Simulated assay, not measured.
Amino acid sequence: MLHSVPDIDNSEALTERQQAVLDAALRLLVEEGDHLTMTAVARRASCSKETLYKWFGDRDGLLTATVQWQASKVRVASVGGKGLDLASLTASLERFGSDWLKVISSDTSIALNRVAVGHAGSGKDNLGAVVLENGRFALAKRLKPVLEAGRQAGLLEFGDAEMAFRTFFGLVGRDVQIRLLLGDRLELTEATIGGDAVRATQQFLALFGAKTGPQGL
Score class of each variant (00 low, 15 high):
R75M: 13
A77V: 08
A164V: 07
A153H: 05
Y53T: 10
R136S: 09
F168C: 04
G61N: 03
G159Q: 01
G97R: 00
L139S: 09
S72F: 07
F137G: 04
N134K: 11
S48I: 05
K54G: 12
D99W: 00
P145D: 08
T66F: 05
K102N: 11
R174E: 12
A65L: 11
L127R: 01
S122I: 03
G183H: 01
K49W: 02
L112V: 07
L143M: 10
R174V: 08
A129T: 08
D85Y: 05
V172E: 00
V131N: 00
R59C: 10
A87D: 13
S48H: 10
A153M: 05
I110C: 08
N113P: 00
A161P: 07
L155S: 04
L181H: 01
L155T: 03
L139R: 09
G83P: 03
F168K: 01
N113E: 12
G173F: 02
D99I: 03
Y53E: 11
Q177P: 02
K49C: 11
A129I: 04
C47W: 01
L52V: 07
K141N: 14
V115W: 00
L127A: 06
D58N: 15
A140P: 02
E157H: 03
E148C: 08
C47V: 13
R166E: 12
A129K: 08
N134H: 15
K73V: 04
S105A: 14
L93I: 02
I110E: 06
V115S: 00
S109V: 03
D125G: 08
D99R: 04
L89N: 06
Q68L: 13
V67M: 12
D184C: 10
D160Q: 10
Q177F: 14
A149V: 01
F56Y: 15
G159L: 01
V172H: 00
L180M: 09
L143I: 14
L84A: 14
N113Q: 14
S122Q: 10
D175T: 13
V131W: 02
S88I: 03
K73G: 15
V130L: 12
A111W: 01
G81F: 12
F165H: 06
F56M: 08
G97N: 05
T90N: 12
A71N: 04
D107N: 12
L101D: 02
D60E: 14
E94G: 07
N126S: 15
R142V: 11
F56K: 01
I104Y: 03
S48Y: 07
D85V: 13
G57V: 07
L84Y: 09
N134Y: 09
S78N: 15
V67S: 06
L86R: 15
S78E: 15
R75N: 12
I110T: 08
A138N: 14
L127I: 08
A129C: 11
V117C: 01
A153N: 02
L112R: 07
S109K: 02
S92M: 09
W69C: 09
A65S: 15
E94R: 13
L101H: 04
P145K: 09
W55D: 15
L155I: 09
G123A: 11
R114I: 11
A120H: 10
F165V: 04
R166A: 14
F96D: 01
T66K: 01
G159C: 07
G118I: 14
F169K: 05
I104F: 09
G97W: 00
G57D: 04
W55G: 07
